[in-house]
Every structure is written in structure tokens, then in C-alpha cells.
Design a protein around this nucleic acid. Structure first.
Lengths: 123, 123
DNA sequence: GCCAATAATTGAGATAGTCAACTATTGTCA
DNA sequence: TGACAATAGTTGACTATCTCAATTATTGGC
């Protein structure tokens, strides 16, 4: 029930920016400061390289990211976030790290405890 | 990083049963004791009714669920979990509710606290 | 310089998802 | 009762996501 609401809100948010979940995931994963080879992106996303080709195609068409050739190896293409893409990414991040309403509503004591425990779990 | 591992484990688990995430989601959502109209399933999953048609088609082909006609309204088709489907669903549930390794590794004190806080958040 | 390995792309094929149009049934109400 | 709007499900068209196999271009070893 709670999850239904969170999911609906997320989809609504993404559709406002015309981003599919996979596209948002890719954009969030990229570091605007550090372009990354396609193959690394595939590894990080845990999917096939050919899938990344398609995802990058669609985001590149919209000017959110771009392919650059690597200086050292002409086979490699670096995926870089454009200024436009970086701005959109910031908005996504802002939303993404905003706690879902039920969590945000916790008393401060509990919120602090929750954070401490999750940090410990994450190592 | 942690999420990467959890995700990979989940995908591997699903592929062992030849289930896509959407199919697993549908199967988990159904109550083997209580068949449900297609339209209710669509509402619960938060997707279009025509999408449910396809999902149910594929799971029905494999004998995991089946369509039954409702006694009261001949327009309605009830989605019922078959015995085979119910067994698979149990395995899924078992895995699904098994805590991811990092959480399972928490000291018991922290685990209890975590549960208490999340329960409070869930209302 | 030959040749295996690597990076990315392409094409085929399946699933997942949306929307609009359609069929069959039901319920309303004049 | 009989016309008609509303509802349940399906179908078809279209896009995105994903995998796998094959292809191209480049690199590096020997």
C-alpha cells in the first residue's frame, strides 16, 4: 500500500521529465565530473553492453549526455554528462534522496537510529 | 555496491525459475486462496488492464495461473493461482522475505530496533 | 605482420508498458 | 421494454528494455 503510493509518485515524477526508469538510473549512475567508458557503464548497471548502446542513444538525442572518444584507445567511447544533463541529474538526485513520506514522518529519535543502523549494515 | 549484489542475486534467482521481474511481481501479488478479477490485478499492479492480459497470458501458458469465469458477471474473468503456481509462489515468498545478507548480519539488538522503526513508519 | 582479444554497434527476438479501438455484457431509466 | 451509456477484457500499433549472436574497428602479443 505504502509502496504503491511511492511507486506512483516516482512514476509521475519521472514522466514529468520524460525519463523512463532505466534512463533515470543511467543518468544517476554517471558522474558529471568523470566520463566513463560504455563498458564500465554496462558493468555498473549489470546489463549487456548492447543495451547501454540503446540507452545512451536516446539520452544523447536529447542532449543530456554525449559520447566522446578516448584519447588512448580509439575503440573506447566515453559517456559524458552535458551541462543540461547535469542540471536534470541534480533535480533527480534531490528527489531521489528525499525520504519517502512515511519515513520522513518519523520522530527524530527514530530517524537517527534508523540511519545509524542502515549505515552499519552498509558497512 | 550492496544494491548491485542484491540485484544480481535476485536476477539469478528469478532466471532459475524462468520468471521475469514483472511475472514474479504478479504471482506474489495474487492470493492463492482468493481469485481476483483482472481489473483488480491491474489496479494493484498500478498498470494498464491490457498489460495484465499479456502477463496473465504468459503465466497461464505455463500453468501457474488460470482464468476462471465469474458466476455473477460474465464480463469478469477471475485470475486464480494453480497448485503448481502456488508452490512456486511459496518459494518466491521464502526468498523474497529472506533479509539481504548485510541486514541479516546485523547484531540482534540493531535488527530489533530496525524492525520496530520500520513498523512504526509503515503505520 | 599475423592473430587473438577487446569495445562498441547492429539485428533478431522476447517481454513490458501505453493508448485507442473493439466486443461482449451489464445496468439504467424513460 | 428497449435504447444506450458504462464496464471488463482483449486486440493492435507503437516504444522501450533487455538478451544473445554476429560484425566492425582497433589494439596488443609474440
Amino acid at each position: 500500500m505504502v509502496l504503491q503510493l511511492v511507486k506512483a509518485a516516482k512514476q509521475k515524477f519521472l514522466s514529468e521529465f520524460d525519463l523512463t526508469p532505466a534512463q533515470a538510473h543511467l543518468l544517476l549512475e554517471l558522474d558529471p565530473e568523470r566520463p566513463e567508458p560504455m563498458s564500465d557503464v554496462a558493468t555498473t548497471l549489470g546489463c549487456d553492453a548492447s543495451n547501454v548502446t540503446g540507452l545512451v542513444d536516446r539520452l544523447e538525442e536529447r542532449g543530456l549526455i554525449e559520447r566522446r572518444s578516448a584519447s588512448t584507445d580509439r575503440r573506447v567511447k566515453m559517456v559524458a554528462v552535458t551541462p543540461t544533463g547535469s542540471r536534470l541529474r541534480s533535480k533527480l538526485l534531490e528527489y531521489w534522496y528525499e525520504a519517502p513520506a512515511p519515513i520522513a514522518g518519523l520522530p527524530q529519535r527514530d530517524a537517527r537510529e534508523l540511519l545509524r543502523i542502515l549505515r552499519k549494515a552498509a558497512g
